[in-house]
């Protein structure tokens, strides 16, 4: 979908379902069965009420942009990727998630812009959760 670098993320027993979900084009996050909080980032306990009774649940993948920056020139593997957009999106279910906005000209990105999840993958099963404008999806 985008031309931004993918990465070798660190997958562990706490986060495996999240990454498996992305590979199946679904956004799965843990929801606390005790206080109902959606947990971000995924982990084995609820950081709000400390319960360890969590259930993986599919999210809408919809949200709005909370804030963003257009990075002129990145570092390392991102050196040639600029300009690109780093953003916090606020997922409909609550969490604010760090991501990239792709598939839309950086100059058109705005706070409150409705966005939807993009499961950005490469040939090698690596996948990242990015977002694009609802109107360009």
């Amino acid at each position: 979908m985008s031309f931004l670098p993918l990465a070798d993320v660190e997958i562990n027993n706490e986060t495996q379902p999240f990454w498996d979900g992305l590979r199946n084009n679904t956004l799965l996050l843990p929801r606390c069965t005790s206080c109902t909080s959606v947990v971000w980032y995924p982990r084995a306990h609820c950081p709000v009420c400390f319960s360890t009774e969590l259930k993986w649940e599919e999210m809408s993948g919809r949200g709005t942009i909370y804030s963003y920056s257009i990075v002129a020139k990145g570092n390392g593997r991102w050196k040639e990727s600029g300009p690109y957009v780093v953003a916090y999106i606020e997922l409909a279910e609550g969490p604010r998630i760090l991501t990239n906005i792709v598939g839309v000209a950086p100059s058109e990105v705005q706070i409150n812009m409705p966005v939807t999840a993009v499961f950005d993958s490469g040939d090698d099963a690596r996948v990242l959760l990015r977002f694009t404008s609802v109107s360009s999806s």
Binding site: A7, S69, N75
Partner: peptide
């Protein structure tokens, strides 16, 4: 790390998001 550091988030970009908001 896997939820923040793979999006080209430079240190400046983080502060830039705070400034934008």
């Amino acid at each position: 790390i896997s939820f923040e550091n793979f999006f080209g988030l430079s240190i400046v970009a983080g502060y830039a998001m705070a400034a934008r908001r």
